[in-house]
Design a protein around this nucleic acid. Structure first.
Lengths: 340, 340
DNA sequence: CTGTTAGCGCATTCAA
DNA sequence: TTGAATGCGCTAACAG
C-alpha cells in the first residue's frame, strides 16, 4: 500500500531517487543509496499503482485478448475447448513477457475500440474477427494489433495475422477423400460467417475436385446450426441418404466427434455407412472410435507466434513476416472408408 | 481521445457539469444543458480514462480471474478443456455486470496479492487454490474474494466458496460400483495436491465401502502423473493386472476418456476387461465408446454462481450462503461391467 | 548524483 | 444549477 513518496520519506531521499532505483537506472544513483532504498522498498512491500502509470504515460502493460463471438451464439466461444488451448498458450506468453491479460468476448467493433482506448491497451490479440470488422478496428486503433485466423476484405492497410494453411488443408483432405473413392461429399462449416477459414477450406476442396475432373458445387457447403439438437437432425439426414453423399467433411474435430458419437448411438456405422473427417487434430480426434482422419494444426503454437509478433510490434523490432500461415498436415486414421 | 475537460470547453460548460451528465446525476443539471452536453459527448466519442479512474477513487472495475497452477505443470490449466466452460461462463457474467476480466495463471500467492493491489482489483475469482495459499491470500487482500473448488485448512477467517458435493460424488460412484460387484477399485486423482476435491471424493468412496463392510485403503489413492506417457504406462499396468482391481475410478472425465481410448488401442476391452468411471460429465464422457458412467456437475453454473456471489460482496448486498455446494448426480452409462 | 515540480484525467468537495 | 480547486501516484524535465 505504500507509495514512492512514502518510501522516499522513510529512506530520507527524494521520490525521483526511489523511482530510479525501481527502474534500474543505476547510473543515476550511488550504490550506497541504491542499497538503502532497496531495503526500504522490500520492507514496505512496494506495489506500483498501475492507474497512476496509465495516467502518467498512457500505457498500461495490458494486452487485450478479444475473442470474437457470433451475435446470436448461445454459448460463448470460450466454452469451445478448441479455443482453450490457444488461450492457454497466449496467457502464458503474455505473462512471461511481463504484461497483463484483459480477456473480452464481443461481437461489436466499437466495444473493442472503446476497450482499447479506455485502458490504453499496449496491444491487442484478436481472434476470429470477420474481415469488415477488422477494417473498422484497424482504422480506429493505433496500438499494435495481431489478428488470429482472420481473413481480410480490403488492402487499405497492413494487417498482421497468424493464420493457417486453410486452403491447403481443404485441398489435402479432399484429395485424400477422392483417392478413397469419395466423389459426393458435404462440407460442414463451423458457423454462418461468409468470410473466414471455412470458405477458404472449401475452396481448397473445390480445387482438389477440379484437378480430378470432378465438381463440388456451392450447395455442398453447409453451415452448422448453433443449436445442438438441430445439428443432430442434420447429421442424421445426411447419413441416412447416402445417395447424396458418402462423406461428411467437418471444419472442426469437435463437431466431427459430436457427429460420430451421435450417429453411432443411432446405430449408424462409421465409416461403414458414411465416412467422416475432422479438422484441427485435437484431443477429440483421438477420443472417438473410429479415430478421426483429420487435418493437423498446432493451436498452441498459433497462440505463441501471435504473442511473439505482438511483442515485436510493441517493441518496434523488425518483423520478418506480416502474415504467417502455419503449416497443416493430414492425419490419416480410421474414419474414412475406401469405396470400390 | 477527448477528455471531460475538452468536452466541457467545447460545450461551454464546466468539467463538473459534464461529469454529472456522464454519471446520470440528472438532479444536478438542467435538462437543457444536459441535452447539449450529451450531444457533445457523443460527437466527440468520449471514452473514460480508466487509469484516471483508478487513481481518483481506487477501484478499477476489474475482476481478477486467477487460475491456480501446479508449479511443475507443463501445460497451463487453461489448456484443460474442462476449465474453459467455467471461464466462458465467468467472462460472460462479469462482462454483463459491467466489469472487466483480468486473467492470470499462477502458483504464487504473492503474485496474486501484488496483482490485486497494483490494479486495485474490485474483486477476485480464485480457482483450484490449495488451502494454505487461500489463507495467505485472504489474509493479505481486503477486496471481495470468491474461491471456486477450494478446500480450506483453517477457520481463522470466512471463506466464500463455490464448490461441489465432492464427498457425495465419491460416495455415489463407489456405491454404484459396489452394487455392480466391484470391491477392488483404484482411485486416480487429478493431481498431487494433498488437499482439494480429489481427497474428499476418495473419502466419499471409503464411506460407501465402509457401509458395505468393505475397506478401501489409502494405498488405493493414486495421483496421476503430469506427463501423458507416464499416465499411459500406469493405465496399462492397472488394466493388465485385474487381480489387483476391477475398476478404475477417475476424478475427471478427461483422464477417464484418455484411458479408455488408450486401453482400447492396446486391445484391452472396456468394460469387459476392466471398468472405468469418470467425474464431471462433460463432452468427453459422451464422446468415447463406451460412454462413461460418471458423476454429473454443472460447470457453467459454477462460474455463474461464483460471479453472482462476488457481485453481491462488491455491492455489499446480503448473502444467503457463504459456501455453496453444487449438487451432483450419477450419470450411468456403459463403462462399468456387472461382475457376478 | 539528488531534489523539485508540473501535469496526466477524473471525482469530489466547497463556493458561488 | 454551475464552476473552481484539490488530490490520487507516478513520470520526466529541469534545477541544483
Amino acid at each position: 500500500m505504500s507509495t514512492i513518496k512514502e518510501i522516499a520519506q522513510k529512506a530520507g531521499v527524494s521520490p525521483t531517487t526511489v523511482a530510479n532505483v525501481l527502474h534500474g537506472n543505476l547510473g543515476k544513483v550511488s550504490p550506497a543509496t541504491c542499497k538503502k532504498v532497496q531495503t526500504f522498498i522490500e520492507n514496505e512491500k512496494y506495489v506500483p499503482n498501475m492507474g497512476a502509470m496509465i495516467l502518467a504515460h498512457s500505457n498500461s502493460r495490458i494486452i487485450g485478448v478479444i475473442m470474437f463471438m457470433e451475435p446470436r451464439s448461445e454459448e460463448t466461444v470460450l466454452e469451445d475447448p478448441f479455443s482453450s488451448a490457444m488461450l492457454g498458450a497466449m496467457e502464458r506468453e503474455i505473462r512471461e513477457n511481463g504484461y497483463f491479460v484483459m480477456l473480452h468476448t464481443t461481437s461489436d467493433e466499437d466495444e473493442v475500440v472503446r476497450l482499447s482506448k479506455a485502458w490504453k491497451l499496449d496491444g491487442l490479440l484478436l481472434v476470429w474477427v470477420p474481415g469488415e470488422i477488422c477494417r473498422v478496428i484497424s482504422a480506429n486503433i493505433d496500438t499494435p494489433l495481431v489478428y488470429i485466423d482472420c481473413y481480410f476484405t480490403d488492402n487499405e492497410r497492413v494487417y498482421h495475422n497468424i493464420g493457417l494453411q486453410d486452403r491447403r488443408g481443404g485441398y489435402e483432405i479432399a484429395r485424400y477423400l477422392l483417392s478413397m473413392g469419395h466423389t459426393d461429399i458435404v462440407f460442414l462449416a463451423n458457423n454462418q460467417l461468409v468470410t473466414g477459414g471455412d470458405p477458404v477450406r472449401f475452396i481448397g476442396c473445390q480445387e482438389a475436385f477440379g484437378e480430378q475432373g470432378q465438381t463440388l458445387g456451392a450447395e455442398r457447403y453447409k453451415p452448422l446450426p448453433n443449436n445442438r439438437g438441430k445439428r443432430e437432425i442434420l447429421y442424421r439426414q445426411l447419413a441416412e441418404d447416402t445417395s447424396q453423399c458418402t462423406a461428411l467433411v467437418f471444419s472442426a474435430d469437435y463437431y466431427a466427434a459430436e457427429a460420430v458419437s451421435y450417429l453411432k448411438e443411432c446405430g449408424i456405422e462409421i465409416p461403414g455407412k458414411i465416412s467422416i473427417t475432422g479438422f484441427d487434430d485435437n484431443i477429440f480426434s483421438r477420443l472417438v472410435q473410429p479415430r478421426l482422419t483429420t487435418v493437423h494444426q498446432d493451436t498452441g503454437e498459433k497462440g505463441r507466434l501471435a504473442v511473439a509478433m505482438l511483442m515485436k510490434l510493441i517493441r518496434k523490432e523488425p518483423l520478418q513476416e506480416i502474415n504467417i500461415q502455419l503449416p497443416i498436415r493430414l492425419a490419416i486414421r480410421d474414419s474414412v472408408q475406401r469405396l470400390n
